[in-house]
């Protein structure tokens, strides 16, 4: 099939895969990519539960504003979309 927009996936070289944990589960990601990117790829869409109705929520704005991707690292709540993957990082739910 003719493509006017080529599939360039094969031309992208990424950093090494490392392992971090999310809520105790090991997750693979390229070091430096956003946690949201790695978590989405690994199928961890549901990052937290909303107050009041306890419904599942995941990354939404991807630009550090909506706070839907809030996770806990070193005891501090941070936005997963603004935080990079690093080997051994322990990421918890809020």
């Amino acid at each position: 099939m003719i493509r006017l927009v080529a599939n360039q996936a094969a031309q992208i070289r990424r950093s090494e895969q490392v392992t971090f944990t999310f809520d105790g589960m090991p997750v693979e990601g390229h070091s430096g990519e956003s946690l949201v990117s790695a978590l989405l790829r690994a199928g961890h869409l549901n990052l937290r539960h909303a107050p009041n109705d306890n419904a599942p929520r995941g990354a939404f704005c991807c630009m550090g504003l909506c706070q839907e991707c809030a996770v806990v690292i070193h005891g501090q709540v941070v936005e997963a979309c603004c935080t990079g993957v690093a080997a051994g990082l322990v990421v918890g739910r809020v």
């Binding site: 390229h30 990519e33 956003s34 949201v36 990117s37 989405l40 869409l45 549901n46 990052l47 599942p56 929520r57 995941g58 990354a59 939404f60 704005c61 991807c62 630009m63 979309c81």
Partner: peptide, 16 residues
């Protein structure tokens, strides 16, 4: 979960 912003998606494309 799995619904992200349209502009937000471009952040994923550009950054990671």
């Amino acid at each position: 979960p799995g619904v992200i912003g349209l502009a937000g998606a471009t952040a994923l494309f550009k950054h990671s």
